[in-house]
Simulated assay, not measured.
Amino acid sequence: MARQVLALEARLRACSNVRAIGVRPNFMDYSQEEVGWIRDAGKIYYPTAFYADLFDAVGKPTFPSYHTYKCTQDKIKQTALFQLAGLPHPKTRVFYGKRQKARIRDYFSYPFIAKEPRGSAMGRGVYLIGSDADLDAYTHDRHVAYIQQYLPTDRDIRVVVVGSRVVHAYWRIAMAGEFRSNVARGGRISLAPVPEAAVALAQRAAQVCGWDDVGMDICCHDGQFTILEANMKYGREGFRAAGIDYFQMMERMIDDGQI
């Protein structure tokens, strides 16, 4: 009989070998039986950002890793980590307060990209800034401005790394007139072969950054592959398009001890 693992989040609830008990910020709301399961578990799956650091503090392994949760939906930390590790990444700078925001044009020429620095996903909070009016609208009443070099392209590559291996890679092609290739923004999935160099870059970046459940977004600019951002809450549309049963895949990886 396959071993059963313990999860807090419901992401793997459809897996037959996962017992998902839910997330309760008040730890005392867990029953005594559930507390026993948590304390006895060799690893906790999908503990959420709230519990990941607490489990790390007491030496309890998690999947995804504590480092993965630290950078979830935090573009500022991701960029700093890419820069620290020397990984290819578009020119990016964060500006704080009125005095710094007034100097954005000293560093970037139109057009460029502006993003919500934290909490955004699926292409939301990503803006193509092409004029002073666009920039004023983005910076108005915003303390932190996350500004990135615009790399003109109609497609990018999503490479999904789970554990230590690449489990899927596919193209995302933007719809006409749209600068974002996100499926949620009308992007189309293509299963055409993905260059090995892009896959290798994603795998290396995930390893260097300590991320073990991530969708890396990569584009090709001037003949070089570069990492746009990392998505720890990636969608499963690419898996469905390729006929991959995501939950069966995760079940096997748990059974095999890969995650």
Rank of each mutant, 00 (worst) to 15 (best):
T92Y: 10
K70V: 00
Q83M: 12
R93E: 09
P90Q: 03
F95T: 04
P64G: 01
T62N: 08
R93K: 15
V94W: 12
Q73C: 07
H89W: 02
A80V: 09
R99S: 08
Q78Y: 08
A85E: 05
C71A: 14
S65H: 12
K91S: 10
R99V: 04
K75D: 07
P64S: 09
G86W: 08
K98T: 13
D74H: 02
G97C: 11
P88M: 14
P90L: 06
K75N: 06
G97K: 12
G86C: 06
F82K: 00
F63H: 07
A85R: 09
Y69F: 14
K77N: 01
G97R: 10
S65N: 03
Q83L: 15
P90R: 04
V94M: 10
P88I: 04
Y96M: 08
P88S: 05
H67M: 07
F82E: 02
K70E: 10
Y96Q: 05
V94D: 01
T62D: 01
T92I: 07
G97H: 11
G86Q: 02
V94T: 15
L81K: 13
T79G: 02
G86V: 02
T92C: 09
G86I: 05
Y69W: 14
K70Q: 13
R93C: 06
G86R: 07
T62P: 01
T62A: 07
H89D: 00
R93Y: 10
P64A: 12
K98D: 12
P88F: 06
C71D: 01
F63T: 01
Y69Q: 00
Q73H: 04
L87D: 04
S65Q: 03
Q78S: 06
T72A: 12
K77E: 07
F63S: 02
A80I: 03
H89F: 14
A80F: 13
G86T: 11
L84Y: 15
Q83G: 03
P64R: 10
Q78T: 02
Y69P: 00
K75V: 07
A80M: 09
K77I: 11
Y96R: 12
T79M: 08
Y66D: 09
Q83S: 04
K70G: 00
T79C: 11
A80H: 05
F95I: 04
A80C: 03
Y96V: 05
Q78D: 07
F95G: 02
H67W: 14
Q78N: 06
T68Q: 05
Q78G: 04
G86P: 04
L87V: 03
G97N: 09
R99L: 05
C71I: 12
K98Q: 11
L84K: 15
T72Y: 03
P88Q: 05
P90K: 04
F82P: 00
L84D: 04
T72R: 13
H67L: 05
G86H: 12
T92W: 11
D74S: 01
T72I: 01
K75Y: 11
I76Y: 03
T68A: 13
Q83K: 15
T72S: 06
T92F: 09
Y96G: 00
Y66P: 02
K91T: 13
H89C: 05
T62Q: 11
A80W: 07
R93V: 13
L81N: 10
K91H: 11
I76V: 12
Q73L: 14
P88A: 15
K91E: 15
R93T: 07
T92H: 06
Q78P: 03
H89E: 01
G86S: 10
K91A: 13
F95D: 07
Q78H: 12
K75Q: 09
G97S: 09
P88K: 08
S65Y: 15
L87S: 08
D74P: 00
